[in-house]
C-alpha cells in the first residue's frame, strides 16, 4: 500500500527483526501483526479489551494489541508468541510449564495467556496462588477453568528468570 494522507509508514522491531510497513492510521496493531506480517499466533477474542487473547509485549510490558494502533507502536520493540521460541523451535520455560501442566485446551487464549504470565512473573517472581489469579485478570480462558494454568505458574514461581 503506498503512503497516502491517511496512511503512515511504521517501523517496528518485532521479535528482534526490524519490520516496516505502510498502514492506515486506523490499523490496529493486532491486525498489522496478523494480516500484514502473518504473525497469526496473536489472536483476537473480543472487541472491548477484555479477553487478553491479543496480548503482546511492547517495550517489555504486556499490552493488549487490539487496543493499540499500529502507528502508535511506530518505533517500539515488540515480542509476540512467535518470538518466544528460538530458531530451534524450543519452547520457553513458561510454554514448557503450560505443556507439563496441561494448562491449555483449545489453545486460542494460550499465546496471550503466556504473555501475561511472563508479565506477572517479571513483576512478581514468586507469586502466591491468589496473586497468580489476580495477575491473570486480563485474560479469559474458557476451556481450562484456569486450574491448570495456575498450577503451571506455581511451578514457575521462585524459579527466577522469565525467559
Amino acid at each position: 500500500m503506498p503512503a497516502t494522507a491517511s496512511t503512515r509508514e511504521v517501523t517496528i522491531e518485532i521479535n528482534g527483526l526490524r519490520r516496516t510497513g505502510t498502514v492506515e492510521a486506523r490499523r490496529l496493531l493486532v491486525h498489522f501483526l496478523r494480516e500484514d506480517l502473518g504473525l497469526t499466533g496473536t489472536h483476537v477474542g473480543c472487541d472491548t479489551s477484555q479477553c487478553g487473547a491479543c496480548t503482546v509485549e511492547i517495550d517489555g510490558v504486556a499490552v493488549k494489541s487490539c487496543t493499540v494502533l499500529a502507528v502508535m507502536a511506530d518505533g517500539a520493540s515488540i515480542t509476540t508468541i512467535e518470538g518466544l521460541t528460538d530458531g530451534s523451535g524450543e519452547l520457553s520455560r513458561v510454554q514448557k510449564a503450560f505443556h507439563d501442566h496441561h494448562a491449555l485446551q483449545c489453545g486460542f487464549c494460550t499465546p496471550g495467556m503466556v504473555m501475561s504470565v511472563r508479565n506477572l512473573l517479571r513483576e512478581n517472581p514468586n507469586p502466591s496462588e491468589r496473586e497468580i489469579r489476580h495477575g491473570l485478570a486480563g485474560n479469559i480462558c474458557r476451556c481450562t477453568g484456569y486450574h491448570n494454568i495456575v498450577r503451571a505458574v506455581e511451578s514457575l514461581a521462585s524459579e527466577g528468570s522469565v525467559a
Binding site: L39, T40, G41, T80, I81, G89, Q95, H99, L104, G107
Partner: peptide, 10 residues
C-alpha cells in the same frame, strides 16, 4: 498451539 503455530480459520 504454544508456539503460536496453531491454525484457526481467521
Amino acid at each position: 498451539l504454544l508456539a503460536g503455530r496453531g491454525r484457526y480459520v481467521d
